[in-house]
Amino acid sequence: MLTIGDLLPDPRTGARPSENNRVRALSALARRAEQAGLDVFALGEHHNPPFVTSSGSTLLAYIAAVTSRIVLCTGSTLITTNDPVRIAEEFATLQHLAPGRVELILGRGNTEAVYPWFGKKAEDGVELAAENYALLHRLWREEEVDWDGRFRTPLRGFTSVPRPLDGSPPPVWHGCVRQTETAENAARYGDGFFISNLFIPMDHFEPLVELYRRRYEEHGHGRAEDAVVGVGGQVFIRQRSQDAVEEFRPYFHNTPVYREQTSLERVVETTALSVGSPQQVIDKTLTFRERYGDYRRQLFSLDLGGIPLDTALEQVDLLGEHVLPVLRRETASGQTGAKLVG
């Protein structure tokens, strides 16, 4: 499951949760996701209203304490405005608290106003992402680091502590919306490539995935078809498709990522959004392999747009009971070794 932790009133009732209720709801969703058999809980980072997810490592550390199995992932960590030293420290610490359950999706962030709040410039976003990740990559793999870069103070003989658990850095995915540089960076390091396709037509991502797969192989990490691709999306499920569409429509128009769109039907047709019966969600999700090839992770957003906690929990249960078993069975011949669904 993927959540960006938006704090919005329910458009159907006008009820608005408090910040405290919304933050605690994220923990409740993670616990229910684990109980329902989902493999991953991913938490997006935002520093501006209407979101409550400014401190992902804190939230995931709490969730680690109330769960036992589910993978704790960021979705995403802002590699542009966060200090790579702090990222290295915080998520290595989380590894020690939740062994084998910590992963990161790194992203540039799509809110330009955030950059100056952290002393950065939005126009430097691509270069910041590349330089900061180069440092983060070294901090987790080298005991002492000497570093000179354009965007931060130099380091001399610096050791990031604690060290990654058992010497193994957390797995990293590079989240992409538009930039070919993101695909190239993921391929260069042999990391995962996660397409953040919540609101952009799926056609847009096909050449990016193709580029990543080709460059992954050219960089010597393995065959293009074995490259580590992840796919996002949103679902809203009811047993009858008409009920799903009727109930979800107000949330669609209330959701930040869809507010520029005028037609729910058009967005369902062109993007990864699925609204309908369990079978409709299954059928659409299975088409993603036709576009992107076999891939290793599928994350679903279930709580955007002011969807209340009770409804979001129902969505988790419907996904776990009716959709995930079929998806796992139907994709069992693909990259099953690392396939995680959430």
Rank of each mutant, 00 (worst) to 15 (best):
Arg238Glu: 14
Leu8Val: 10
Glu246Ile: 05
Asn48Leu: 15
Arg141Pro: 07
Arg86Ser: 09
Arg188Glu: 11
Thr311Lys: 13
Glu143Ile: 01
Leu208Ala: 03
Asp166His: 12
Gly320Pro: 10
His47Ala: 04
Asp317Ile: 04
Arg297Met: 14
Glu217Tyr: 06
Arg156Trp: 01
Ser241Pro: 06
Leu299Met: 12
Val281Lys: 01
Gln179Tyr: 10
Phe288Ala: 02
Lys339Thr: 13
Ala224Asp: 02
Asn185Tyr: 01
Ala332Asp: 11
His137Ser: 11
Ala15Gly: 00
Asp317Thr: 15
Tyr133Ile: 13
Glu103Trp: 03
Asp6Ile: 09
Arg266Ser: 13
Glu314Cys: 00
Leu165Ile: 14
Leu59Phe: 04
Ala224Ile: 10
Glu127Met: 06
Leu304Phe: 13
Leu135Pro: 04
Ser54Phe: 11
Thr270Leu: 13
Leu29Tyr: 02
Asp6Glu: 15
Pro250Arg: 08
Asp191Lys: 00
Ser241His: 10
Arg223Leu: 14
Arg291Leu: 15
Gln315Tyr: 10
Val231Asn: 07
Lys121His: 15
Asn185Ser: 12
Gln179Val: 04
Val114Phe: 02
Arg259Ser: 12
Asn254Pro: 11
Thr3Arg: 02
Glu131Asn: 03
Gly305Tyr: 07
Lys120Tyr: 10
Thr331Asn: 06
Leu302Lys: 08
Tyr251Pro: 06
Arg24Val: 06
Gly305Cys: 11
Gly37Val: 08
Leu155Thr: 09
Thr255Ser: 15
Gly192Gln: 05
Val52Asn: 04
Leu60Asp: 06
Asp6Cys: 01
Thr271Cys: 09
Glu206Met: 00
Glu181Val: 12
Ala64Ser: 14
Asp203Ala: 14
Glu314Ser: 11
Thr58Lys: 00
Gly192Phe: 04
Pro170Trp: 11
Ser301Val: 11
Pro170Thr: 13
Pro325Ile: 09
Ala224Arg: 12
Ala92His: 06
Leu59Lys: 00
Ile63Arg: 06
Val23Met: 11
